[in-house]
Design a protein around this nucleic acid. Structure first.
Length: 261
DNA sequence: ATGGCATTTAAAAAATGA
């Protein structure tokens, strides 16, 4: 079972690229972030034509998350984090079960500039997410948390930390929240299989960052402990970032040795 | 310190991203 996460940066403007990637990579489950589309314009028909059922949680202009599953519509188990904040309209979390695996698709707030209200919102969202992740683990079902976490976990996960030292993605508070999440018992699948390798999932559009391979690893897939023995492979579809009209993120994925229903 | 690019909404320019 292959589970992928891809920040598409506009699901409608990027649709041909996303469909090409689905056709090539053939994930069983795909978590998408940054749809930038209201639900009424989510291209569900195009995904259905490509063989994927879809759940989507969008809003106009910004944010938005979706879960696709090959040959079926995912069974929804959550939309937004539990105990939503009053007046908070940001669409950042969607959860579903596919073939017995719970999949949480998240788009964690960026948090720039920091310090400031956006950074406060990021840290507060992170805490609420971590509380939910802890409840998921307590539930004891096989679970994958996949998405754009907007955190560079360590200096191995960025080409040059010095040029990003004031960025919200590298702040000690952001990294501490990530470490608290891992300490619950989750495994960072890509890092578990590639402990020393420089692996990136995001390259800024500016300043020749893609041709220079000046990237960051901020898209992650976390496995609950019961899934760890099934982990067979994990990686990034780097070539997607090099195509014309690409998102600034590349898809990341895990392959799990699980029977497909 | 600034600016560099891309997307959406909506019809020019602002907001946002990481």
């Amino acid at each position: 079972m292959k589970i992928a996460t891809f920040n598409v940066n506009g699901v409608n403007g990027r649709l041909p690229r996303v469909l090409d990637w689905l056709d090539t990579a053939q994930p069983d489950v795909a978590c998408l972030q940054e749809l930038k589309s209201p639900d009424a314009r989510f291209p569900a028909a195009a995904f259905a034509e490509a063989g994927y059922g879809a759940l989507f949680h969008g809003q106009p202009s910004w944010n938005g998350v979706a879960i696709l599953a090959r040959g079926q519509v995912p069974l929804e188990t959550g939309r937004g984090l539990p105990d939503p904040l009053p007046g908070d309209t940001q669409a950042r979390y969607l959860e579903a079960v596919v073939d017995g695996v719970t999949v949480g698709c998240l788009y964690l707030p960026n948090g720039n500039p920091q310090p400031g209200p956006k950074f406060d919102y990021k840290l507060a969202w992170f805490e609420r997410f971590n509380a939910h992740a802890r409840r998921l683990l307590a539930g004891g079902l096989p679970t994958v948390l996949a998405g754009d976490f907007n955190v560079v976990p360590t200096d191995l996960d960025i080409y040059n930390p010095a040029s990003w030292q004031d960025d919200a993605l590298l702040q000690p508070e952001s990294r501490a929240a990530w470490q608290r999440l891992l300490a619950q018992g989750w495994t960072d699948a890509i890092r578990a299989l590639h402990p020393d390798e420089r692996i990136y999932t995001f390259w800024d559009y500016w300043r020749q960052r893609w041709p220079r391979n000046a990237g960051l690893r901020i898209d992650h897939l976390l496995l609950s402990p019961d899934l760890l023995p099934a982990l067979r492979a994990a990686g990034v579809d780097r070539e997607v970032r090099g195509q014309p009209g690409a998102s600034d993120h590349a898809p990341a994925w895990v392959e799990l040795a699980l029977p497909r229903a």
